[in-house]
């Protein structure tokens, strides 16, 4: 290759390497802050700040959802397979919110610990299935959901 072009090629590679290294370091330093949410285990271990708005994500524990009779208030437990955390929320829940499915709740921690959530988001997975197939696979699906809940518990 022509020496001038070789020098330009080296320059291009240099720009790529230096910028990747810079961004890589920044991302590494910020890695905790780039997580959208804390897990219930992290909250129980006291790793989540108590005096600010945080998000907690996990699986909604089956049978834990309680709705108030006279208002939109709800209570449910989030689990990561290890620890569980109570969440209290007053307001609408998204269509995909359901027991045994993943959700992310945002709000402030109260003693208990309990999360006083002002927003509850449903997190869905990457699987897409027609309704008939889903019904047919129900048994297998539940077994997998249990297994996934177990995996989510390991950090």
């Amino acid at each position: 290759m022509h020496p001038v072009r070789r020098r330009r090629l080296v320059l291009v590679l240099f720009v790529l390497v230096v910028s990747s290294a810079g961004v890589g370091l920044a991302v590494y330093a910020l890695r905790q802050n780039l997580n959208l949410f804390y897990t219930p285990s992290q909250v129980v271990r006291g790793e989540a700040p108590a005096d600010t708005r945080i998000r907690v994500g996990g699986m909604v524990v089956r049978g834990s959802l309680e709705r108030a009779a006279d208002s939109l208030a709800v209570r449910f437990r989030l689990t990561d397979g290890d620890q569980e955390l109570w969440v209290r929320h007053e307001g609408m829940l998204p269509d995909l919110f359901a027991e045994g499915e993943a959700a992310v709740a945002a709000g402030r921690l109260r003693a208990g610990p309990l999360l006083e959530a002002d927003q509850v988001l449903a997190k869905h997975d990457e699987n897409y299935t027609p309704p008939e197939v889903a019904e047919a696979m129900q048994a297998g699906h539940e077994a997998r959901a249990a297994r996934e809940a177990g995996e989510a518990g390991t950090p």
């Binding site: 890695r31 959208l36 949410f37 897990t39 992310v104 997975d125 990457e126 699987n127």
Partner: peptide, 20 residues
């Protein structure tokens, strides 16, 4: 890499797509 609200990829080069 991070806990995120967005679901992981449905189409992967190394595995069958998780879609009917």
């Amino acid at each position: 890499w991070w806990y995120s609200l967005h679901q992981p990829a449905t189409i992967r080069l190394t595995a069958a797509p998780s879609m009917h």
